[in-house]
Design a protein around this nucleic acid. Structure first.
Lengths: 106, 106
DNA sequence: AATTTGCGAAACCAAAAAGTTGCACATATA
DNA sequence: TATATGTGCAACTTTTTGGTTTCGCAAATT
């Protein structure tokens, strides 16, 4: 089961879980209350998220609090960077064209 | 078949295709040469990418040139934004802690 | 006109994924 | 100690996915 972060965020439930625990840590039961699936299904998603180090577990008695490993999210940002460069460039090109049009109008 | 952009970029081959056609448009055959799969498999990937408007097709005789719809990529960026805010905040908090430590050393 | 080339679509297959049910086990609580 | 609670794990089922093969069609080439 070779998971990567892109596969992890592909599932809409997992993205919802990420959003849920982004600000405060939660237990599997508390998370599952927000979905129409069983706790076990959520547990499976959490396991996948944990496998690619997107979430962190904190044991407290018999409860486990899951929280987002925000630094891991930067990997997506890093991947996006190459494309951000492209869309910035294209925007600048458009900008150039627009300013040329403006100039010619004068 | 409900496709979204996150599902589209989940597959490594599709991410490679995206990278390939990011700078110049290419035909399915030309794209397929870069992979160990058949042209038809690539064609299927292209169809998925087209379905969620990540690629644009340009017909030229019997050839079809595919190019990246870079604006669509911004959707990922937009989704990331909420988390970027979080990691910026946490970084600033860390920064605060570090400067406090520094101060106390003096 | 006959053949080659570039392409998408459909049918099929194997593997992976997502979900469910039924455990086992530890930690609380009575 | 007996019971309830919170959790992960394994087995199983269904759905989805990624791939191949085969086909048909249109545009080039001969």
């Amino acid at each position: 089961m070779r998971r990567d972060i892109f596969q992890a965020i592909a599932d809409p439930t997992r993205r919802a879980i990420i959003a849920l625990i982004a600000l405060q840590s939660m237990t599997p039961n508390a998370i599952a209350e927000n979905f129409n699936t069983t706790r076990q299904a959520v547990s499976k998603h959490l396991r996948i998220l944990a496998e690619c180090e997107l979430v962190k577990q904190q044991y407290q008695g018999r409860e486990i609090f899951y929280s987002l490993e925000i630094n891991k999210m930067k990997e997506i940002d890093k991947w996006l960077e190459q494309y951000r460069k492209i869309w910035d460039t294209r925007f600048n090109q458009l900008d150039k064209v627009l300013s040329t049009i403006k100039k010619n109008k004068k």
